[in-house]
Simulated scan of single mutants.
Amino acid sequence: MHAIILCGIQGSGKSSYAQAHWFDTHVRLSLDLLHTRQREDVLLHACLAAKISFVVDNTNPSRAQRLRYLQLARASGYERIELYHFRSGLAAALERNARRSGKQRVPDIAVRGTLAKLETPTPDEGWDRIVVVEARIDGSYREELLQT
């Protein structure tokens, strides 16, 4: 059982990375997909009860938001609980966001607002592993292990 929590501003590459890495192995929990916290909670608790691996693909800018998932997974006996922090500059995130269309594109003010609320994850949060990810212009990713 593996729980992965993503953290980062809109346009930082979270959803693309999740699709490339865990599409076939983890249930994806995303407010973009589920639209409400209630629906997310129903699916999250179903994963926890069934001991299914999952990835939370939301911005999760605050420590409190991230710790909620960590505590629930830990209490449910998950073997590995990891945080992937998507580090991105504002200009790069806004550029990637501008390439989106329809509902996938969020207002620039939302990206700026999330950046203003972003609390950089630290090892003392209690994760089994923290990976810092940076999306590159060519579509690849640079990964740095912050904590094992």
Rank of each mutant, 00 (worst) to 15 (best):
C7M: 07
G8C: 06
G8H: 05
G8A: 09
G8Y: 04
I9Q: 13
G11Y: 11
G11E: 11
S12W: 11
S12E: 11
K14V: 03
K14E: 06
K14T: 03
S15M: 02
S16M: 07
Y17S: 01
A18Q: 08
Q19T: 13
H21Q: 15
F23I: 06
H26W: 14
H26K: 14
V27R: 08
L29T: 10
S30D: 02
S30M: 00
D32Q: 11
D32H: 08
L33F: 07
H35G: 05
T36H: 07
T36I: 08
Q38P: 00
Q38L: 09
Q38C: 05
Q38N: 07
Q38R: 09
R39Q: 12
E40Q: 14
D41Q: 12
L43F: 01
L43G: 01
H45C: 07
A46Y: 12
K51S: 13
K51R: 13
F54T: 11
V55L: 08
V56F: 06
T59P: 08
N60M: 05
S62W: 01
Q65I: 03
Y69W: 15
Y69P: 14
L70N: 10
L70E: 12
Q71E: 15
Q71R: 11
L72Y: 07
L72V: 05
A73M: 07
A73Q: 07
A73V: 06
S76R: 05
G77M: 10
G77R: 05
Y78T: 06
I81K: 04
I81S: 02
L83Y: 01
L83G: 03
Y84C: 15
H85K: 10
G89I: 02
A92F: 00
A92W: 00
A92P: 02
A93I: 02
R96Y: 09
N97E: 08
A98Y: 10
R99G: 11
R99N: 13
R100Y: 01
R100I: 03
K103V: 14
Q104T: 10
D108Q: 14
I109K: 07
I109M: 03
R112P: 04
G113A: 07
T114G: 00
L115H: 01
L115W: 02
L115E: 01
A116P: 02
L118G: 00
P123Y: 06
P123D: 05
E125P: 03
D128K: 04
D128W: 00
R129E: 14
I130R: 05
V131I: 15
V132Y: 15
V132C: 15
E134W: 03
E134G: 02
E134L: 04
A135E: 05
I137P: 13
D138R: 15
G139E: 03
Y141W: 10
E143C: 06
E143N: 05
E143Q: 08
E144M: 11
L146A: 12
Q147F: 04
